[in-house]
C-alpha cells in the first residue's frame, strides 16, 4: 500500500468533506447583522407628511423602534397593524418611526392616508440611512436603546408580542439578538 498517497488523499478529502457536511442545512442567504450592540447611526430625515426634521440625537433617552418598509412589500402590510397597535399602547417613552425604502412619496402618502398611521414615516433620500443600518430588504425593524445602541434587529414581519419583548430588551439596554 502506498502510504504517501493514502496520507495526501485523506488530508485533502477529509477536511473538504467535513466542511461541506458542517454547512449542510445552512441557508446561504442568511447573513448575520453586525450592527447589534453598536451605536445606532445618526439620521436627520423629513417625514412624509411634512413638518420638522426628525433626528435621532433629539430622541436620546427614549427607546426608538425603526421600521424600514415599502408599499410594494406584502409582509410589511401584514405587520402594519401590529406595529400600529404596539405604538399606540406603549406610551411616550417608546417612539416608533417608519423609514420608507425604495418607494415613491405619492404612493406612500396614499397608503398612509388609507391605512392610517400612529407614527410618522420618514423619507430616506438615496437610501443612505438604509445603507448605514445595513438593510437588505423590507421589512426590517431595529430596536434602539435610550442610550442610542441597537439592541436587536428583525428581518421579518413582527407581531405585537415580539415588538413588546424587543422594546423591553431595548429599554433594559441589553443587546439581544438578530433574526
Amino acid at each position: 500500500m502506498n502510504r504517501k498517497v493514502l496520507l495526501v488523499g485523506l488530508l485533502l478529502v477529509v477536511p473538504l468533506l467535513g466542511l461541506l457536511l458542517a454547512n449542510l442545512g445552512r441557508d446561504p442567504r442568511r447573513v448575520d447583522s453586525p450592527m447589534i450592540g453598536k451605536p445606532a447611526p445618526p439620521f436627520s430625515l423629513k417625514p412624509v407628511a411634512g413638518g420638522e426634521t426628525v433626528s435621532l440625537d433629539a430622541l436620546r433617552g427614549k427607546t426608538v423602534v425603526l421600521n424600514f418598509w415599502a408599499t410594494w412589500c406584502a409582509p410589511c402590510f401584514e405587520e402594519h397593524g401590529e406595529l400600529q397597535r404596539a405604538a399606540r399602547s406603549l406610551g411616550p417613552e417608546v417612539r416608533f418611526f417608519g423609514v420608507v425604502y425604495e418607494d415613491e412619496e405619492e404612493r406612500v402618502r396614499t397608503f398612509l392616508k388609507q391605512q392610517g398611521s400612529a407614527y410618522p414615516s420618514l423619507l430616506d433620500d438615496g437610501g443612505k440611512i438604509a445603507i448605514a443600518y445595513g438593510v437588505y430588504g423590507v421589512p426590517e425593524t431595529y430596536f434602539i436603546s435610550p442610550q442610542g445602541v441597537i439592541t436587536s434587529k428583525y428581518a421579518q414581519p413582527l407581531d405585537e408580542a415580539t415588538i413588546r419583548r424587543a422594546v423591553r430588551e431595548a429599554q433594559a439596554g441589553t443587546a439581544g439578538g438578530a433574526s
Binding site: 447611526p41 442610550q147 445602541v149
Partner: peptide
C-alpha cells in the same frame, strides 16, 4: 454630530458642511 455616551469617539476635524451621513 451624534456622540452616543457609549462611544468615546473622536470628533473628526472634518469640513464644517458635512451632511449627517458623511459625518457619521
Amino acid at each position: 454630530l451624534l456622540v452616543p455616551a457609549g462611544v468615546a469617539g473622536q470628533t473628526p476635524e472634518a469640513l464644517p458642511l458635512l451632511s449627517t451621513e458623511t459625518s457619521d
